[in-house]
Amino acid sequence: MVFTTLKRITRTGFVNFWRNGFLSFAAIVVITLSLCSFGAIIFTSAFGRTLLADVKDKVDINVYFTLSAPESDILALQSDLNSLPEVASTTYVSRDDALAAFTARWQDNALIMQGLQEVGDNPFPASINIKAKDPGRYGDIAAYLTNKNPTDASGTPIIEKVNYQENKLIIDRLSRIIPTVEQAGTVIALLLVIVAVIVVWNTIRLIIFTAKDEIAVMKLVGASNIYVRGPLVVSGIMYGLVSAAITLVLMAAFAYWSDTLLLRLAGVQVAADFGLLVNVLSDYFRANFAEIFVIIVGAGVVLGGVSSYIAARRYLKV
């Protein structure tokens, strides 16, 4: 009996969805637009996260050592730094590495290369590049270095300079801006979701309103609430599923189109220089398709199904 009831409810829901062509179309358009706003939130958030991560990644501090600093002391300091909870990573650049990098960069500039030869000895100090887990923690790391003030065997300080003060302004600003941007993004996303839910809810309510006489007739012939409401919910879920499918196709198209557009606008080389902008959305869409699928289809089904379920309630009181 339960199976028969479910079969009849599902069949009626499908038939209603098909026969109420214009209303179904209107509902699908509205739900698709709402789901697209969800998609926009997902993409904006992904793009924003990539952008912020890249900016965070570009912020660092460097510790420059004296030319006489022994490598073993520098490596010991690097080991200490790696054990700090604030530090994400450190990179040691020896004097030879620094000279090699400089030479590689300026090898086509004869004047500079001549000047380097005139200096004779390697003028570049060894350094440690430090990346913090959070940009706000660079001050702590700089303070740690100042307090520690490591020395060599003869008691001479080995640190020549920490460039924290030079980067402090941008680090401080980023530390303030990044949480603000993240919070603003969350608020805007929430507002969009609320607007989408209200619009869909009202559309479904109007559709159910047009069926109120049918609902009354069904009730008067003795149909139970589930028998009357069931097909409406099935139709609502159908609106959601079709809308979700359209939205996913639109999102995929947008992800790939936006990448192509960025490449075209910026030029391949420029875009490559700003690597963060290339293929962000398409890569994100591919990598997170399962999650996006669940969010969009889930939102569509919930919006359509739950709205229909609730909207039908007031007309079941016959």
Binding site: R8, N16, N20, E214, M218, L220, V221, G222, S224, Y227
Partner: peptide, 23 residues
């Protein structure tokens, strides 16, 4: 008070289905 989106058959069948009659 017939249901406009249902055929004559479906309008009548619905009343039977609503009271649990089998197919």
């Amino acid at each position: 008070r017939l249901i406009p989106t249902k055929t004559v058959y479906e309008n009548i069948a619905f009343a039977m289905e609503a009271i649990g009659r089998n197919d």
